[in-house]
Design a protein around this nucleic acid. Sequence first.
DNA 1: GTATATTTGTTCGTATGTATT
DNA 2: AAATACATACGAACAAATATA
Lengths: 229, 229
Amino acid sequence: MLKYQKIAEQLFSFIKSNNLKQGDCLPSLNKLIQQYGASKTTVLKALDQLERDGFIYQVQGSGTFVRNIPDEHFINFNVSHGWTNDFTKTKMENSDVTVEKTLPTPLVASRLQCAIDTPVYKVQRLKKQDDKIFCLETSYYNANVVPFLNEDIAKASIFHHISDVYQINVGFSDKYFKVRRLTNFESDKLNLPQDSFGLAVHETFYTTAGDIFDFSENVYHHENATFYI
Amino acid sequence: MLKYQKIAEQLFSFIKSNNLKQGDCLPSLNKLIQQYGASKTTVLKALDQLERDGFIYQVQGSGTFVRNIPDEHFINFNVSHGWTNDFTKTKMENSDVTVEKTLPTPLVASRLQCAIDTPVYKVQRLKKQDDKIFCLETSYYNANVVPFLNEDIAKASIFHHISDVYQINVGFSDKYFKVRRLTNFESDKLNLPQDSFGLAVHETFYTTAGDIFDFSENVYHHENATFYI
DNA sequence: GTATATTTGTTCGTATGTATT
DNA sequence: AAATACATACGAACAAATATA
């Protein structure tokens, strides 16, 4: 692990273990430089990462301070994979898992930016948190990039699997969302009355090298799924 | 304007004016260093900002590439003030503006982290985009931080006003959201049937110095409001 | 397939600027 | 007015990943 990442992790642990609250002050840059035996550049990079992640904020001439810890009943909308609020990891369980090797619809092919005769894995999963139905996920993996998937892999974590086995690492994603009425199939799966509404999220995932490997649509249970950013 | 900001702006303009698409390559670091007469650190800082904003991605050993331009019908969920997708600025108009100096409810006081006898401005605005109703905003400003507001200011831009007049600059915000049924008042304002659903967003705004000055609830029209991140 | 060049990523050190205390 | 603390910018060296010959 890199030096600035290690510093960022230790500072984060410091905040958690000392139970620091919004507005509490962190040690000054110079103290952190001494404390970690690092250069200013390196400590600043660690602080910048923590700031991007929403844990701290820096005020010129004043100091570095802790931000609010997000309410634990809400889920970080930025990490749709991993499902953690970074403070208390919430266990997300997959059920009703189906995996099918098939050909993409025109919409899916356009989102995966592949030809319509490119084989894709269609994966559907019902995600539950503490036995509460959280969302229905329908995702499509380009089989030319992700050579193999099955129910066992999908029941655990697809992203971890393809990272471990194929060294395919998630880089970034395009993410669109809106509120819409559920289809009968969706309301059935989510155990909601017909004509219920939910949050529908379309997300296209790219590898760190910029290649598309996954397009997903998640439909969230409007009562059980609440988010923060 | 700072050097790295200027470089970031010019690179962004370069992408737009040359109509670059997803995957297109930007000049290498060394070329940018020569081109802008800046150090590696400074150019990197500009690139990091553009990467954070979702415009580019960097691949070690390979190069720097352009990301997808977001669909123009979707709005950047991260900038609830300003209302721009950074490529085509969409005009957002305020109507049905009311401003009232009052005392906070317990919920509002807790969100503003102020006493219940602290005066606050309650501002309500209906936001329209091309005459389509976009959302109903109800916001509360701590009057000890923002000394004065009226309908004229609220009809234009409150954030611009308090930045210009009081040097109060927005630093960051805590943002929570979920899908819920609208109240009768809300569905009436949004011109939707009763019992419609919408996206409800609670956002607490902090100044760059870390002081809370605004708590807002936005309720979005589920047909007219679509987002990206 | 391998060596080499290219390109981004990390880390160090230093100087100067700017805002707050 | 002075001290403190973060912000910007420069330069240099080395590391790591990728592209190319």
